[in-house]
Design a protein around this nucleic acid. Structure first.
Lengths: 214, 214
DNA sequence: TAGATTGTTAATCGATTAACAATC
DNA sequence: TAGATTGTTAATCGATTAACAATC
């Protein structure tokens, strides 16, 4: 591929920069909803609480998307970011663990419009297996490796109890999963080619209480 | 207060360091559950995927907690970290928005053992007001400012729809909330003395798809 | 004692920002 | 044109790591 975006793909982009791209995308969508056609690094910066230099610098890792004196065409930059983040087509996602949290995630309406479809549910509880959540059948997690392989699923959300989290992650890796959104409060050990993002509300709260006064 | 921990409180600790303390605490709890009495920066580092130097350096911001040649007494370091993070007593938390996610959070069993008690629920939906979730009554969010003030609540979890997120945050701030765990996919604008932590599964997933191959 | 590990220093590494030429 | 804003460079800022004296 010969365009600027992909020409720069070979250089390593800092992970912290990649992590900000979804926030840029989110903000652009918002601006578009407000009827705006173009924006600037300054406007994005104000919305996000970043510096405008950071936004320009971040984007410069991937190409040139703006016009001097004018700024960025919102629709164009959105499309470019979606392309960079591999969001051009829908991703199928496996959700493992259909407890309260898994249930809420299975019904979460924002996944599909943002490019993610919960395509398979797994649980170990025989009472849940065979039931449906949001019209998706809950499968026996004993068959998780084959089922995920067969479906070609590359992304998983892990919402299982702590004590089976690492074991489940091992099986997801075995099944070819490349990205795990981990809700279990533990550091998963996975091969370097597998990405993990952790969501732990307790850790977030405990970070903030450092600054809190009673 | 005269101990080493608080003597160092005056110097500004980098926010990124504070954010790692809950992970240290989490790992120490795990080690204690495994029956260990002492640990080392190296052991913690291996569990967390950090460097041992980083762990020693991070802790050094707050005092001296280890013994050369021996390492750290787990119970002692746990207690110190809890003290540093203001986790010695239970924090009351207000949960705003009792949708699927709010419902799951209200029933989440890990808050209490980790020092957080969901003490009040709020929702704008008349059909939900007056009902109970996990035996906590859902209050009318019209009265949120007074109710939170009266209860002296300093921490809130925001699980409301995007379009009312900023407005709700404004009211939380007005009510004296110092920390907001924000599940709405937007950057909240709050005064500098109010801490916000964002949890957005979509942003996490989109960060990982950058590295994924179909 | 010998071995192990801390706490700290200094060096390294990486990220952010200020500034500005280019140019729309 | 005049004003605005980009993309990039270089400087600054901050975080991480290597190394080691101190010492348990």
């Amino acid at each position: 591929m010969a365009d600027a975006t992909n020409a720069k793909r070979n250089k390593v982009v800092p992970d912290i920069v990649v992590g900000r791209l979804p926030l840029y995308l989110r903000t652009l969508i918002r601006l578009e909803e407000e009827g705006k056609i173009v924006t600037s690094s300054q406007e994005l910066a104000t919305r996000l609480g970043f510096s405008s230099a950071q936004i320009r610098k971040d984007l410069s890792h991937f190409g040139e998307f703006g016009k001097q004196g004018t700024g960025y065409n919102i629709a164009y930059l959105m499309q470019q970011l979606k392309n960079i983040l591999n969001l051009d087509a829908m991703w199928d996602v496996a959700l493992v663990g259909v407890g309260d949290l898994g249930h809420a995630l299975a019904r979460y309406g924002r996944f599909v419009p943002k490019g993610f479809r919960i395509a398979a549910l797994f649980d170990a509880d025989p009472r849940k297996i065979g039931t449906r959540v949001n019209n998706i059948p809950v499968q026996n997690s004993e068959h998780i490796v084959d089922a995920i392989k067969q479906a070609g699923i590359k992304i998983a959300i892990l919402a299982v109890p702590l004590d089976v989290a690492q074991d489940t992650a091992d099986r997801l890796v075995e099944a070819g999963v490349q990205a795990i959104l981990n809700y279990a409060p533990t550091t998963l050990i996975v091969p370097p080619n597998v990405k993990v993002q952790n969501i732990d509300p307790i850790a977030h709260l405990q970070k903030m209480t450092y600054y809190c006064e009673r």
